[in-house]
Amino acid sequence: MKNKPEQNLHVRLSECQLKWREGRIIDLPTITLARGESLGVMGPSGCGKSTWLRWLLGVTQPYVKVTGDIIIANHSLVQRPIEESGIGLVMQEQALFPHYNVVENLMFALAQQKLSRSKQRELIAENLASIGLPDYQQRMPHQLSGGERARIALLRAVLAKPELILLDEPFNGLDQARRQQVCQWTYQFLREQGVAAIVVSHDENDLTLAHHRLQWPQAQQEQRNEALS
């Protein structure tokens, strides 16, 4: 990946190693992202991409040991709980809380911004209109199409004002035509919002619009001492 001038750097992930219990090892290079930039990470299903994303988020995963550092806005985030990391998450599965309607899903993200309820509603109405879904406030997630769900999920993540957003296979389950449309909208929206993002997918077509791309490396097997002797 190209080096950027230090002052533009917003997210810096140092060289990182993932080591599974059974001895599988993945080494990742240093990654840097400026605001509004995105990194597309491609690799087959089950190669460890989601495990890495969860580590970035701060989820404890007892079956894998990860070494490396996450620096956002000059602060190290390793060991910080998820809720204090300033990292948002968008997943295709369970993208929204299915038991709350659209406006309630979005209000959950706005809660920490100390806005009055009416101000929250106003902001949500504006943002829904800006993504082309103005009359969707009272709809339940099951009443939305896959593309609509994906857009609202990304809007929800952005409304919480994160420093970095992780998108885990965000376009899965969408048909080909819809997938391309939602994909274009997503990258454009992230750029406009000035949020750094990491998009993980097994389909390289999902990542063509990303600023940087990383092919998930081949796993190596740990050389055990016993085997050497």
Binding site: R54, V59, E83, G88, L89, R156
Partner: peptide, 20 residues
């Protein structure tokens, strides 16, 4: 229930584990 995914998303929206 997919409760772990809900918790993870809730926490990524800056809500504590308890509140999520």
């Amino acid at each position: 229930l997919p409760y772990q995914q809900w918790l993870m998303q809730g926490r990524s929206l800056a809500s504590s584990h308890w509140h999520s």
